[in-house]
């Protein structure tokens, strides 16, 4: 599928105790993953709120990923399972307004999974590249023209 040179912007909300450390490990291991990912570190994905996700899309990003600890391994007991429910709800909201729920995804990984972080980042970038620019940012650019 032609993407016309489109490079997606993706925000990754990453838990300090797992995904953020895994991203760090991926760097230490000299693993390559796309530079389209902007990592925002949280102390726990339980901090994530519908408003953070919506504001990211409203601000013009094409995709959002939330990366937390493996289920059952949350440093704060249940933050990642709460985030899972919020991401599910946010997907419905994004779907209902025509942005598309598939532009948002939650992943679970441990801090030792540097290669997996690189793989997730690559897969998410490919997914959004195939979906094309977010309809929100596309519309804004057309207005600017």
């Amino acid at each position: 599928m032609s993407t016309n040179g489109f490079e997606p912007q993706i925000v990754a909300f990453c838990c300090h105790y797992c995904a953020s450390a895994a991203a760090d490990l991926a760097g230490s291991m000299r693993l390559r993953y796309p530079p389209n990912i902007l990592v925002i570190k949280l102390m726990c994905t339980g901090r994530i709120d519908l408003l953070h996700i919506l504001r990211a899309f409203e601000g013009g990003v094409d995709g959002v990923m939330v990366a937390g600890c493996l289920e059952g391994n949350c440093h704060f007991i249940s933050g990642n399972t709460q985030a899972k429910r919020r991401v599910q709800y946010a997907k419905q909201v994004l779907e209902s307004i025509g942005v598309g729920g598939e532009r948002l995804e939650m992943f679970n990984l441990s801090s030792s999974e540097g290669p997996r972080f690189a793989k997730i980042a690559t897969e998410m970038t490919e997914r959004i590249r195939n979906l094309g620019p977010s309809p929100v940012s596309r519309q804004k650019k057309e207005v600017v023209k």
Binding site: L51, L54, R55, F57, E58, V93, S96, I97, G98, V99, P135, V136, Q139, K140
Partner: peptide
């Protein structure tokens, strides 16, 4: 945020 994006998309 929801209404702004819904408006922009439509």
């Amino acid at each position: 945020s929801t209404l702004r994006m819904a408006g922009a998309v439509s």
